[in-house]
Design a protein around this nucleic acid. Structure first.
Lengths: 251, 251
DNA sequence: ATTAGTTGAACCAATCTAGGACCATTAAGG
DNA sequence: CCTTAATGGTCCTAGATTGGTTCAACTAAT
């Protein structure tokens, strides 16, 4: 079931009692259960405890924090509510939080193809919402980004930046803050992914022209409030990008 | 000299209150409740106290500011009127001003409805990929989460945690690291969103049973590699959640 | 003199904490 | 198998801490 403990039970306990508090913080924050909750939460989120690692026993934590066991239990109860730890009678309290890879790591784990797969899910919905919710200012911003990206027909870097701005303007036009927030994160990955290495091979002058044509088609569809057209445009755009990517992949 | 044993509550509190007056300003500005209000206000707005952090007790603040408790109370009363703090008898005075942390911010800006809209886009794709890519271990993890969540038919908290775990297992089964990464971020928001406040009204025993039925249907579909069925199941599940949410909204 | 603000004190009710006892479960070893 | 120790779960009581309230006295400005 669960992985065996590295130490025998008694040895483990003794070790816990001798060793200093793991978080090296002792009396920084408020001394209530809220403060203990905050300290442990931070420690877990920062990766001080790995996934499914066992926390010190409640009685040990009480000693370490200089609080009563009841107070520690209150803190652990909150952590359990946050789904950060799970507790088993007779066993202990275990971390139930897989630290997520940060932006750098996720960019390395994500292939350009997987990135486009995700964009192929998110962006059509952005387009749909944009048709419904975009206001004059949003359209203006998209138009500006469009003209910028169209002007960069022969410069890979310029096109790349402009393309990012245009799609971001699309995200903003959806008027869904969560969707925008998500797309910003996706964009971060996009900026770090290995796609950048192949940009020069993919972004020929011909393809840039084709992409820009699709950009304008998308903008026109949104400005004229044509949902079907907009979704077709963005979907076609991304599918073409995917096909171009796969074509280069084979070389 | 140094005590081998932890501090008692009294000593601990004294230590915390004696050590650093957080606003390094003490009696510079003109005494009076107005001056104290201004100093505390500035301290809170500058992020010296994080969200939901506890301020020193009134009696401690009185000492620190060299004023009487009544004066401090007047200052706190004004801060309360400004919606910067909230006070609870027996507990303390807590900051209610959300600094501009990213996650907190987006949680505040995102309505539960918008959250489901986004999930309605992401999760069907997760299901699709899960049908194609889930391995035995993924299915095992989903099944475990499923049994856990099914066992919590009458406890809102247990169901809530279990539901989160199940959907996270679904995300993992998609085998797309970027999608998983995205869903973890969505989950962060879900954890903070105002939905939590209405959980108790929405999650009746009847609805929990219905949700669990849909969970199992989804799992069965994925285990038997039926894409259409899986997408229908997850879509129906989220649409029902949205409808339930809107139903409560009207009350 | 009046007025508004401050002070210091005492007490109240709500809340939290310390500290302990006992239980059921789990894990390790005999 | 049984024994033993450790763990989380539960319940309790006494006491400490906190914000809420009231009141009489003091101060300074009008």
């Amino acid at each position: 079931m669960s992985k065996p403990h590295p130490l025998k039970r008694t040895e483990l306990t003794e070790a816990l009692n001798n060793v200093p508090v793991k978080p090296s913080i002792v009396a920084t924050n408020g001394g209530g259960s809220a403060g203990i909750t905050a300290q442990l939460r931070r420690e877990i989120l920062d990766g001080g405890y790995g996934y499914s690692e066992r926390l010190p026993a409640e009685r040990a934590l009480a000693l370490q924090f200089g609080a009563s066991r009841g107070t520690v239990r209150e803190a652990l109860r909150r952590l359990e509510k946050m789904n950060l730890v799970s507790r088993r009678v007779g066993s202990g309290t275990f971390v139930r939080y897989r630290g997520h890879a940060d932006d750098e790591d996720i960019a390395q784990l994500t292939s350009p193809l997987e990135l486009i797969d995700v964009r192929l899910v998110v962006e059509p919905q952005m387009a749909r919402l944009a048709v419904m919710n975009a206001n004059a200012q949003d359209l203006q911003r998209m138009l500006e980004a469009l003209t910028v990206v169209e002007r960069a027909q022969d410069n890979v870097e310029d096109f790349s930046r402009g393309d990012e701005t245009f799609h971001l303007a699309l995200a903003e036009s959806s008027r869904n803050p969560l969707l925008l927030w998500l797309y910003r994160h996706i964009n971060e990955v996009r900026r770090h992914t290995q796609w950048n290495a192949r940009k020069d091979k993919i972004l020929t002058a011909t393809r840039i022209a084709e992409y820009n044509q699709q950009h304008r088609e998308l903008y026109t569809a949104i400005a004229s409030r044509d949902i079907e057209h907009a979704v077709r445009a963005i979907t076609g755009h991304l599918e073409k990008a995917r096909d171009d990517l796969m074509g280069v992949e084979k070389e």
